[in-house]
Design a protein around this nucleic acid. Structure first.
Lengths: 189, 189
DNA sequence: TTTTTTAACTAACAACTGTTAGTTTAAAGT
DNA sequence: ACTTTAAACTAACAGTTGTTAGTTAAAAAA
């Protein structure tokens, strides 16, 4: 069986559609059609369109938060922690190709859960920033503007959902190594 | 006068709204309300909602394409060309904060102009890739995967529209230097 | 002064939106 | 055999959508 429950199937089908056109441009009739049923039938399994979006985004955001907490509290070097963050993004993204598009592009359409999402994101960014700042303090990272570093790293990691699907025959482990190298050592000779 | 024409005012007002909620979630009534007129009055100046999106996106995409052509055909070093590309993105983004959100998030809602937009983007990416590949060939850049380099650089530059507005009192020239340094030399000590 | 143009307005349209109510069918549980 | 549940259906709702038609008032051009 491909899906655990019918609700799960609705959520994953919706994620595919949301990724193509965005949450607002996808109708309940679009989702239903993709599943071969009528729009009203969706409501036997979910309570609202909004709930579908929440389920997609919040579960992903929580995965990031949980894993970041583990990385943050380990006693690895800053560089190693950053490598683990790269691996975290690549792994979650490659397993949730479609949902990551909603996380990045449709979070503002959350209603009840918007505040909670923003809290999770803020915490995540703060943890990320702490790792970088500690690395600079301890002379492990270059003495550059930590905000610029954070921006650059996070932008690349957040865009993975656009790029990973294009590379069908990708060796994930190799890619994590290559990406870490470029992000940490730059592109200079 | 803040706007050259009333049409220009509609386009710039729309860009602000599109940036917050995305093209599909913004209605003609929203745009009209933001301008203090009725939705039907917009049609004295523009032909369709679609036209507003096209005007925002295509003019920006053409700016990138034109400037890239100039950078590409100069006889600078690869590193200097890349620094110029960084400056190009920072400058266009800081002058078109809101429009850049549409360019990055709403291009798929283009209709007649979608094909043209995709052509411009493909050309731009190809030029970018050529600069990187030449840099590697001539031993100016690290011998890493050029696709990963391109992905990393482009992701960061395309996300500028999210970050620049947050830094109100930003020295643009200084930021271009800092960002170039991080992108080219990485974050390692 | 008269005419034309500009740019707003009201009213309405047909299509589409998320969602609800009530019904039907078949499988599962007793 | 009977009852309950799961999951589909049809029909409809009230509100919203982009857009058009026709009108009005004031400014610009003649």
């Amino acid at each position: 069986m491909k899906y655990e429950t019918r609700k799960d199937e609705i959520i994953q089908t919706s994620a595919i559609l949301f990724q193509k056109k965005g949450y607002s441009a996808v109708t309940m009739r679009d989702i239903a059609k993709a599943m071969g049923i009528k729009a009203a039938s969706l409501y036997n399994h979910i309570n609202s369109k909004q709930e579908i979006l929440s389920e997609i985004i919040i579960s992903l955001a929580e995965q990031f938060t949980e894993q970041m907490k583990i990385i943050k509290t380990s006693d690895d070097s800053s560089i190693n922690k950053l490598k683990q963050v790269v691996a975290l993004h690549v792994n979650i993204t490659s397993n949730n190709q479609f949902g990551m598009a909603s996380l990045n592009s449709d979070w503002m359409h959350l209603e009840n859960e918007l505040e909670y999402y923003l809290k999770l994101r803020k915490n995540y960014e703060n943890d990320f920033r702490s790792i970088i700042e500690k690395g600079i303090q301890e002379n492990e990272l270059a003495n550059a503007n930590p905000e610029v570093m954070l921006f650059s790293l996070l932008s690349t990691l957040r865009s993975l959902y656009i790029w990973l699907p294009k590379k069908e025959d990708l060796n994930i482990e190799k890619f994590i190594t290559e990406l870490s190298t470029v992000l940490i050592n730059g592109i200079n000779k």
